[in-house]
């Protein structure tokens, strides 16, 4: 069963030089109980996508498509109904979660305000809250502290608890590990994993620029490139048998632990991603693609190959999605 169904979603940024097509016709689904990893490099639209599902504000503009969470189209809601949906149906842990808490309020107050907005009583949730705080290694004493009294790591874990307090159907975590040290990254990922296992949220979208993190947490992976989906598939299939030339190059440029330059030379991808303001009709990866041929002058649709979906003309014999 699908929790989230996104169809041909377009989210652009209004800039001085025209529309930047950050998310340009993206379709995917998130099933109940699964973790979908979204990976891609800076400017591929992954953060815009995550944020756009929860909160759209200028200069970000919605330019078409739908995103259904259960039967509600998120793109078709006014701010008031959206506010009700947030935390209850869909929730986000932003990239700079440690700075997301109001510094002038005590943590208890922040939580009380949130519950009040969703017409819930703090007293009823108190037990649950204490239980969840213990799970992430926080003492309930912190409820009487101000956010500034906690370390960055503690604040981030606290935001994880707050954003899942109302058991949302879908939690979006946006690059939450990228500012952390390697040794603490793992703890955070593990906590997310446990939170999902314990049913704090049904499904999880894990956005990262670091494909290798997804090995450990994702069930399925969506690779994005320059505002479009390049490939979607099970994590094992993507790692073992990447189809899209971009996915292949991306995996080929990851330094795997234990490799030295004279044993395996990392490849990297020559060239740079296209300017999102000046996108032509061709495939967006064409300029950097080692396999490019004349068909690539036209933007490829998505083809289904076995269980994978891939946007590349090399797989034209596959079924069009």
């Amino acid at each position: 069963m699908e929790i989230l169904q996104v169809k041909d979603l377009k989210l652009y940024y209004k800039t001085l030089y025209g529309m930047a097509k950050a998310v340009d016709g993206v379709s995917f689904t998130v099933r109940k109980g699964e973790t979908l990893g979204i990976a891609g490099e800076s400017g591929c639209g992954k953060t815009t996508l995550g944020l756009g599902l929860v909160l759209r504000k200028p200069p970000m503009v919605w330019c078409g498509g739908q995103a259904f969470i259960e039967d509600t189209d998120l793109m078709n809601l006014d701010e008031k109904s959206m506010r009700k949906l947030r935390y209850e149906k869909i929730s986000i842990i932003p990239q700079y979660a440690m700075d997301a808490l109001n510094p002038t309020k005590k943590i208890r107050q922040i939580i009380q305000d949130l519950l009040k907005e969703h017409k819930q009583r703090y007293e009823e949730k108190q037990e649950l809250l204490t239980e969840r705080l213990t799970l992430i290694n926080l003492n309930k004493k912190i409820l009487d502290m101000y956010p500034i009294e906690l370390s960055g790591g503690m604040r981030q874990r606290l935001v994880m608890v707050i954003s899942t307090l109302l058991n949302p159907k879908l939690l979006i975590s946006d690059e939450i590990t990228s500012a952390l040290d390697v040794s603490t990254q793992k703890t955070v990922i593990q906590t997310l994993y446990q939170m999902k296992k314990k049913g704090f949220m049904d499904s999880l979208i894990f956005i990262t620029h670091d494909l290798s993190l997804l090995y450990q947490i994702a069930d399925r992976v969506m690779i994005m490139y320059a505002g479009k989906v390049a490939e979607i598939g099970e994590i094992q299939d993507i790692v073992d048998n990447p189809l899209h030339p971009y996915t292949r190059a991306l995996i080929g440029s990851l330094p795997r632990i234990g490799v030295r330059y004279h044993e395996t030379k990392l490849k990297g991808i020559h060239g740079y991603p296209p300017n999102l303001l000046k996108i032509g009709p061709a495939c967006r990866f064409k300029e950097r693609c080692p396999m490019a041929f004349n068909k690539c002058e036209e933007n490829p649709p998505i083809f289904r190959v076995n269980a994978q979906e891939v946007a590349c003309w090399l797989y034209e014999e596959g079924e069009r999605v």
Partner: peptide, 23 residues
């Protein structure tokens, strides 16, 4: 050893990594 085990590895599932403590 901790750094080494924290490095991403496609053949290792999440459950194997222990608590890593605070910096």
């Amino acid at each position: 050893k901790l750094l080494r085990s924290a490095a991403p590895d496609p053949n290792k599932s999440i459950a194997k990594i222990g608590q890593t403590g605070e910096p």
